[in-house]
Amino acid sequence: MVEVREVRRLCYDFARSTGGTLTDFRVPTVTPNFWQAVIEYPDRTVSVVAANDAPVVALARPRSFDFTPAREWGPLEFVDEPGLIAVLAQTEQFQVLTPADLDRSFVAKEWPHLTRSDVAYWKPSTVGEALFNYWD
Rank of each mutant, 00 (worst) to 15 (best):
T18M: 07
V107F: 11
V87C: 10
R44M: 13
T115N: 10
A120S: 11
F78H: 04
R26Y: 07
L97G: 00
E81W: 06
D101T: 09
Q95G: 15
F34P: 01
A51S: 14
A51I: 01
D136T: 12
L59E: 03
W73P: 02
Y134C: 02
A100E: 08
A86Q: 07
P124V: 12
L84C: 15
A50I: 01
M1S: 14
N33D: 10
R26E: 04
Y121M: 11
E92R: 12
T29S: 15
L97H: 00
R5N: 12
Y12E: 14
F34N: 00
T45S: 14
A89L: 09
A51P: 09
P55Y: 02
R16N: 13
T68W: 05
A50W: 00
L84I: 12
R63F: 01
T18A: 10
D13P: 09
N133R: 03
T45H: 07
A100M: 09
P124C: 08
D118G: 06
F34K: 00
V46C: 03
D53M: 05
V107S: 11
V7L: 05
F78Q: 01
T31R: 04
A54V: 09
Y121S: 11
D103E: 12
P42V: 05
V48F: 01
A50L: 00
P32I: 00
S17A: 14
D66L: 14
Y41H: 08
V127I: 08
G19F: 10
D53Q: 08
A54N: 05
D66K: 09
D80T: 14
V30W: 08
E3N: 12
D103K: 05
L131I: 10
A58L: 03
L22S: 08
Q93V: 11
R8F: 06
A60L: 02
V38N: 03
S17Y: 07
S17V: 13
S64Y: 03
P62A: 10
V30M: 11
F94P: 00
Q36Y: 04
W111P: 00
Q93M: 11
E3G: 12
F94Q: 02
E92S: 15
A100P: 00
R71Y: 05
T68H: 04
W122N: 11
A86M: 07
I85G: 06
Q90K: 14
P28D: 10
T98E: 09
E129N: 09
T98W: 01
L10P: 05
E92Y: 12
A108D: 06
V87G: 07
R5D: 13
